[in-house]
Amino acid sequence: MQKGRSRTWLDDQGWWVGVIEFQPSAWSRGSYLNVGACWLWEEKDFLSFDAGYRVAPFQPFTNTAEFTSAAQALAEQAAAEVLALRDRFPSPEQVRALMSRHPRPGIREHMHAGITAGLAGAYDEGRRHLALAAEESHAAPWVDVLKQRCAELTPLLHPGGGFEAEIAAIVTRTRCAVGLPEWRSSLLIAPG
């Protein structure tokens, strides 16, 4: 679905959303193509590219006929990229695998790894990643917000601790904040 009248399209998967952005340039008429997955268990009021981003270079507008062809090719590539994301991330367990292979994890990668480990019932692994996220020393307000969120989630990481329910509540709040419809599903829990 198109996000309002923007050049951004969304592929709603419940606990994540595919973001397709036909990004304009500030210097020239035309479009880049960015496609990625936005994890909705990070409470926020904006869309992000948590996995993926630029998939096609700038396609300049030269004339209507030529750009129509280029735009069609971008749209076809966007569709293929979205289908690949769906195949790549059918459950949080696949996100967990992605985060475990990240070459230089930062606070967001550790937070996502901690959340997906917790959803898989790997509570010790989840606590370890959330603790690593809390060690981030970068001085920025958004870092403090993520560190606080990790601190709030850590005590919930044990059987019956309410972790899964809290993550589902965060997904619900984030969906509302970014303008997605209500979603109810138990598919957030990763298979063990």
Rank of each mutant, 00 (worst) to 15 (best):
M1N: 09
Q2T: 10
K3S: 07
R5G: 13
R5W: 15
S6W: 02
S6G: 05
S6F: 03
L10P: 09
D11V: 07
D12F: 09
D12T: 14
V17T: 08
V17I: 13
G18Q: 01
V19K: 09
V19Q: 05
I20N: 09
F22L: 12
Q23R: 13
P24E: 13
S25T: 04
A26F: 14
A26Q: 15
A26M: 15
W27N: 09
W27L: 14
W27V: 15
S28Y: 12
S28E: 15
S28V: 13
L33W: 14
N34D: 11
G36N: 04
C38I: 03
W39G: 00
W39F: 08
W39D: 01
L40M: 12
E43P: 05
K44F: 02
L47Y: 08
S48N: 03
F49C: 06
D50V: 00
G52Q: 02
V55S: 06
A56M: 15
A56N: 14
P57N: 12
P57I: 11
F58N: 05
F58T: 12
N63L: 02
T64C: 14
A65I: 14
E66C: 11
T68Q: 15
S69A: 11
S69F: 13
S69N: 07
A70G: 15
A71L: 07
E76H: 10
Q77F: 09
A79C: 12
A80I: 10
V82S: 01
V82F: 02
L85G: 00
R86S: 02
R86W: 03
P90V: 00
A97H: 13
S100D: 09
H102Q: 06
P103K: 03
R104W: 08
P105C: 04
G106K: 09
I107W: 15
I107N: 03
R108D: 06
E109T: 03
E109A: 07
H110N: 01
H110G: 02
M111R: 07
G114N: 07
G114Q: 03
I115Q: 01
L119Q: 00
L119M: 10
G121A: 10
A122K: 14
A122I: 05
Y123R: 01
G126Y: 01
R128W: 14
A131R: 06
H138P: 09
A140T: 13
P141T: 12
L146F: 11
Q148Y: 13
C150Q: 05
C150E: 06
A151P: 10
A151M: 14
A151V: 05
E152R: 09
L153S: 01
L153N: 00
T154Q: 08
P155L: 01
L157F: 10
H158F: 03
P159A: 08
G161S: 07
G162N: 00
F163S: 03
E164P: 05
E164V: 07
E166Y: 00
E166L: 00
E166I: 01
A168P: 14
A168N: 08
A169L: 12
A169W: 04
I170V: 15
V178D: 11
G179A: 04
G179M: 02
L180P: 10
P181Y: 01
S185W: 11
L187P: 09
L188N: 10
I189R: 05
A190G: 04
P191D: 08
G192S: 12
G192A: 13
G192I: 11
